[in-house]
């Protein structure tokens, strides 16, 4: 379709505005992270550092809690990713292969879980974890994250299962393969890409989560990176802006990298429902 030059110009102008709105805050974070302390306290800040320094990153890592917070976040996110995927796999298979009321109830639950405010869930979860002695532990946090990541994980995975032709299974069954063998030898290998994508999604959601961590974790030695950062913000003066930006950047990197890898799959997974529906 031909578009007039005037329209094209307007389109590029609009695109430039989007780039400014979406990109400048990010650029500013990077820029602040690489500025020196004297430059940060200067009255008229410049968009880019006049001389780039990695001093803020060194300062961030010297702060004893950052490494332990990153380690806690990593442990929690990896555990969440593994457990969510392992328990979601059979359930996703069941949801996509056995058409029944359960499927509708399952999908209904996925929707309902989006509507209810977390405050209704977090108080009883707090009480349950306290009764189990899991309050203020990483194990308790992982349990909550697994359940929290399950709806979307199930949604994505059942889409991947549905994409595998039934004929494959039936052919193998006719050849005398039992159900577990069919699942292990035929379905599982075909699902590996989908499993990687969904486990990475679970990783990101656990790595980024804040609210449950705020309620469940009190011990500073157990805090995750978002908790550390949120507490750090309170103590900010302009002197601390540099290390704060550096810490924020370090904390975002893992989820950005993982997100970059699965971005395509995540997008299509999210759309598999809305487009067909």
């Amino acid at each position: 379709m031909r578009t007039s030059p005037a329209t094209r110009t307007a389109q590029y102008a609009a695109m430039l505005l989007y780039v400014v709105f979406l990109g400048f805050p990010l650029l500013w974070l990077v820029s602040t992270a690489f500025k020196s302390a004297p430059e940060l306290s200067r009255l008229n800040p410049t968009l880019l550092p006049t001389d780039w320094t990695i001093g803020n990153f060194q300062a961030a890592f010297q702060q004893s809690q950052l490494l332990s917070a990153l380690r806690n976040s990593l442990v929690v996110a990896v555990a969440t990713a593994v457990i969510t995927t392992v328990i979601a796999l059979p359930a996703a298979y069941a949801l996509s292969r056995y058409k029944s009321v359960v499927r509708n109830v399952g999908i209904g639950w996925i929707l309902v879980s989006q509507v209810f405010p977390f405050i209704l869930i977090v108080i009883p979860v707090f009480i349950v974890l306290r009764n189990l002695g899991l309050l203020d532990t990483l194990v308790g946090l992982v349990l909550v994250y697994v359940v929290w990541a399950l709806p979307f994980t199930l949604w994505m995975l059942q889409g991947y299962v549905a994409a595998i032709p039934r004929d494959l299974e039936e052919a193998a069954a006719t050849d005398g393969a039992s159900k577990p063998v069919v699942l292990r030898r035929i379905i599982f290998p075909l699902l590996v890409p989908g499993l990687v994508a969904t486990s990475m999604f679970a990783f990101i959601s656990a790595w980024n989560e804040f609210f449950f961590a705020l309620v469940i974790i009190q011990d500073p030695a157990l805090q995750t990176a978002p908790l550390l950062l949120a507490r750090y913000v309170g103590a900010e003066g302009s002197v601390n802006l540099g290390p704060l930006a550096a810490t924020a950047l370090i904390t975002t990197l893992p989820s950005l990298i993982v997100f970059g890898i699965i971005q395509r799959k995540l997008v299509s997974g999210m759309l598999s429902g809305s487009v067909k529906g």
Binding site: F24, P25, I204, P226, L229, V233, T251, T252, G260
Partner: peptide
């Protein structure tokens, strides 16, 4: 992909009265 805490910090830096862009 960014944690909401980081998005908030990012914008706190942008909005910062003295040192914000």
């Amino acid at each position: 992909a960014m944690p909401s805490v980081i998005v908030a910090i990012l914008w706190k830096l942008v909005y910062n009265p003295d040192a914000g862009i």
